[in-house]
Design a protein around this nucleic acid. Sequence first.
DNA 1: AATTTCACG
DNA 2: GACGTACGTGAAATTA
Length: 928
Amino acid sequence: MKHVFLVDGSGFIFRAFHALPPMTRPDGVPVNAVYGFTQMLMKLVADTDADHIAVVFDTARQTFRNDFYPEYKAHRPPPPDDLIPQFALIREAVRAFDLPCVEMDGFEADDLIATYARLAREAGAKVTIVSSDKDLMQLVRDGEVTLFDAMKNKVIGGEEVVEKFGVPPEKVVDVQALAGDPTDNVPGVPGIGVKTAAQLIAEYGDLESLLARAGEIKQPKRRQNLLEHAEAARVSRRLVLLRDDCEVEVPLDTFAVKKPDADKLAAFLKDNGFTSILTRMQAKLADAGEAPPAAAGGTAVPVPAEVTYELIQTVADLERWVEAATAQGFVAVDTETDGLDCHECALVGVSLAIAPGKACYIPLRHVDPDAAPEPESAQGDLLGGVAAKPAQRPQQIDLAEAIARLKPLLESPAVLKIGHNIKYDMHVLAREGVRVDPIDDTIVMSYVLDGTTTGHGMDELAKRHLGHTCISFTDLCGKGKAQITFDRVPLDKACAYAAEDADITLRLHALFRRRLVEEHMMGVYEGLDRPQVRVLADMEAAGVKVDAVELRRLSDDLGARMAELEVQIHALAGETFNPGSPKQLGEILFDKMGLQGGKKSKTGAYSTSADILEQLAAQGHDLPARVLDWRQVQKLKSTYADSLVGQISPRTGRVHTSYSQTVASTGRLSSQDPNLQNIPIRTEEGRKIRRAFVAAEGCKLVSADYSQIELRLVAHVADIAALKRAFHEGQDIHAITASEMFGVPVEGMDPMIRRRAKAINFGIIYGISAFGLAAQLGIDRGEAKAYIDAYFARFPEIRDYMEATKAEAKRQGFVTTFMGRKCYTPGINDRNPNMRAFAERAAINAPIQGGAADIIKTAMRRLPLALTDAGLKTTMLLQVHDELIFEAPVDEAEAAVPVIKRVMQEAATLSVPLDVDAGIADTWAEAH
DNA sequence: AATTTCACG
DNA sequence: GACGTACGTGAAATTA
């Protein structure tokens, strides 16, 4: 016996459950903790030199500790519903690996671990405890016993224990006895935390010595606490001290490692849908020259037999790769560039992957890494001038030649091009004259499958799904000011990095394809999000014309207005200060001037948000009113006027946004650099910004927006008879709502009543609360509550929908749109009621907001073809959630409108009609 | 890097 | 009875 591994099974279950997104088997059983546990065991069994392994579990809640301290761990809530069925499955997992499960009534897993650790040491073996639980740190003995954090891949030795507790492992119990532990109800001594405890133990040696000499402590409060709570400290020590004398029934030597039965393990993995682990195991067995296990089936294996990345510097080599990719019918593609802005940066190289582990890199615009940073000056030495070291351009295929060879492959309709965020590469290659098509995108696949439960960056996905750590960009190029552009990276390193990206993309693709089928998400991917990539790339490339002269003039006006307001603000305040500083403003309003509306935020700062300032202004105070004006002007100037001018492309003279398809939890798009989905409209001043968005010469802008799409979805999804009828009859929906709720006729309705009904309709979409409605309408909560009750009474279906949606979210961790998109609802089973309420409102909103997003995506997918089929040159430029903006030649704008309206209205067939408003004008403000 | 504020749907 | 919220985004400025 040389090395014993003791796995803290119970600790791992909880950590895996909370760290991993919700996952279910095909039959709906939650398995995220089982998955994490299985992955951990897989890794453990593969990587370890251990000759003895056991997995240790807690049993019932009552242990010997409760006999002398009933409160111990008594306040712990029961495990979440989604975790309960996983306990048994995890024991199954352990058995599938042919590992022993150990547990014992009346003792915690930690006590068993302490006992086996002692037995192992006495037998002369090394011990590794697989856990990160601080309560086990007392067992660490350098050279003999270490902890291993399997989730962070970190070894915890004596040094780490000192870092955590300030004392060596032997004294950890004394520190814990003083500091206590609220999560386990260990009382400790009041006013003493880990820091103070460590200091005291360091000074007095141990707990008993300290308690004996407590009278000497200088700080009066601390002395008193130690004297008063000495007994509590002693009890605490007994609670945290692990028993290493359990009378264990299973002898240590039965933990000897056996070779697991591959068939049994494969069956378990298959039963639980862990196909990624299964394929990895199959690959490993195949590598070792063994027959694949029985349950294997014929699934693809994204794990390479070997990894070879080839640097391509000759046309002949490039041709070989192009031929291989063409013959295969699919290829992973990645581009490297000299910047992050996909609309302006230049292509530096291309990588291709055709099989797991088989990839190449084709450098195209690399420069001498040792040359001066500017490529121009690097090339200035051709005449053999003064430089000590002549710039040497690395050997590369001629750019035009390489593009000419790659173009047929990248444009071939018979070859699928797979990329990770391929929209970026499409833009870069488009400027080299290549229109990449058809495409698959692993970032979009990952988003469709896992939503916002994970990031979708390649490094993260490689780690999560393939257990592979990618070369990091910062390792290659550095960071901050010292960062170099990719064209200055030496070719060998560039090849290792770039080829890896293509390789990983290809492997992820194999995995995600299978998951899309198994998890029934292929429809959403193929029907909505994949076609969107091409559509968005074209919209972004088209850009929109912005009148820079007009914006500069506006900026000057706004600047002058700000200066005037600042003078007034300083006069009203009686001093000069920065009105842009919430801190300074808060102090002036609430400390100096003594206005009511005190501290608000969790950081202790005054809130000076618009609603607070509006209240103050309504009470007749001028300063907050002027500050509100100033803020509006400053926002318009900095965020819109000034920054938009700076975002006009020198290349095209237009503004090119980038849409992200993979950030919103509901399936919406988002727009960035610049964000063109939040251009002002609600105020007259703001509309001036929108007037600077203009049509190109000889064109008009056409704007088409869905009318009340979210409320229509509420009526459809929640099946609300009265609302559906009103939409069918084309009625004023807010007026109808008011009429139903308050029993007043629509004719001659008080606008105030309609406004309230409108606010309630919005509230319904957002997962209504009395608090929120009250804040919105400026009424008290009781009144808001009465409105909501009236709404529920009149439209009872809405309540059923809300309850059913919440229950669905709680059961499976996500809700779905009517088109089948999953919207994950993190926090839905959180212990904190606020977190839960928040998640519940988000869950209620998601199918509505997400359903609307699915509808407009469908319309966007169909529109380009519908327009060309109608013989039109009209192009789609922008999407703003329920609105699409087009640029149409003047003489066809009128003809484009009915085509656009028809496609948008027919994008979904619901139990209510979809209605679209459209306008034609020279500027966005007037077209809307 | 986090917080606050505010623009949009 | 207190808590602290309307849903979803991105950008600029201040603060720590």
